[in-house]
Design a protein around this nucleic acid. Structure first.
Length: 121
RNA sequence: CGGACCGGUCAGACAGUCGCUGGCGGCGUAGCCGCUAGAGGAAAGUCCGGGCUCCACAGGGCAGGGUGCCAGGUAACGCCUGGGGGCUACACUGGGAACGGUGUGGCUACGGCUAGUGCCACAGAGAAGAUACCGCCUGUUCCUUCCUCGUGUCGGAACCGGUAAGGGUGAAAAGGUGCGGUAAGAGCGCACCGCGCCGCUGGCAACAGCGGUGGCAGGGUAAACCCCACCCGGAGCAAGACCAAAUAGGGAUCCGUUGGCGUGGCCCGCGCUGGAUCCGGGUAGGUUGCUAGAGGUUUGUGGCGACGCAAACCCGAGAUGAAUGACUGUCCACGACAGAACCCGGCUUAUCGACCGGUCCACUUU
């Protein structure tokens, strides 16, 4: 098995219907004060990630970019374990001038938590 | 060397690992590999001005909006450059004073209240065709002091007037200073300063200078309505163009109505229903618009300057559920504000700092 850690367009949710499917059939939910992960099984060989980060939650473009990139990074590093899942990241709290290291830490823990939950099932 | 101001440049560096997007090349071509490029000075606010696209459009007017000293720059501007006026700070300086002159900065929303309308609290006697409260002064009458016994004189009251010097009120009270003048005063007269008008000179012009002339305008407010001059069609890349699945529906042609389904054991009958091909609209989705441009760099050249012209060279993001990142290590001045979304020119706002050039001031040394 090639342990590639690439993150391409196949690793993303691209269309509205794809997002809707995950929202309607989310089997696992993991969250904390700031973020929420929704996941459901897919028929693909690869896991797919979707991001929902609205201007309402994060006013500054820099903050939105920061969360997106860090979320993708954490997803990318765990993609071997996450295979067969469609995952959506939602922002719960208000984001303003966050500490980047803190964001990475929180997101990493959330993905681990999600893996633990799926592993039980 | 330090401080202030102005203008410009940069926006932690290096190495490794794992990734992302575009371009180019290669290959065994749904991909993989290699090379290469990959956020900003504000990418921001969306406050102006353009390009581009579609719609509308003979011409003119109204409404609405904008701009407002002059000249220039520009594709254009509410921007920029240069100039003028006004206000102001500091320094020097002229004058007895009012008030001026020079230099260096700063600010300036700077057309028009000699078209009209509106507003101007409070205070004050009076606030817009000015005004007499106190005061000052002439006169008349009365009271009063003095002795020289008067058409005198000291003090005072009332009244008729005069007055805009002084006091007082106010943001503002009919120019200011000085001299003369006068009963006291007053541009009443004169000189100077200020102001209006006329002329000449200089300047493209705003305007300035000089000379003459008038004793001298009648408050402020137009970021109040308004008047004058000039400018402005609307919507925006989710503009717009193209390709186009599935499902439903539309049109045309041909074929079928001897078919299929239901009822029924079957036939007749009855009820329901077409098939094939092509076309156009169009949803999801995709492609394009999409980055080579009012583009940079250097040199020359015109201009005080903004900027123009010419030549040579360069190509410096183009995503689209949305790339430009993460981690580790080392170093230092310990890294601010902040993330492209069609593209440019401005303005405004945010910002840890570093460097370069210029002007002014202060200080040290020779």
């Amino acid at each position: 098995m090639p342990t590639t850690q690439a993150f391409t367009r196949q690793h993303r949710l691209l269309t509205g219907p794809q997002y809707q499917t995950v929202f309607d059939h989310s089997k696992w939910k993991v969250g904390n004060a700031a973020f929420l992960l929704l996941a459901c099984p897919n028929q693909q060989a690869l896991p797919r990630l979707g991001l929902v980060i609205g201007r309402k939650r994060a006013k500054r473009a820099v903050d939105r970019g920061c969360v997106k990139r860090r979320a993708r990074e954490q997803f990318r590093l765990r993609q071997q374990q996450l295979a067969g899942l469609d995952i959506i990241l939602l922002v719960r709290g208000r984001i303003d001038h966050p500490d980047p290291a803190e964001v990475t830490d929180q997101l990493g823990k959330l993905f681990d938590k999600l893996l633990a939950k799926c592993g039980q099932a």
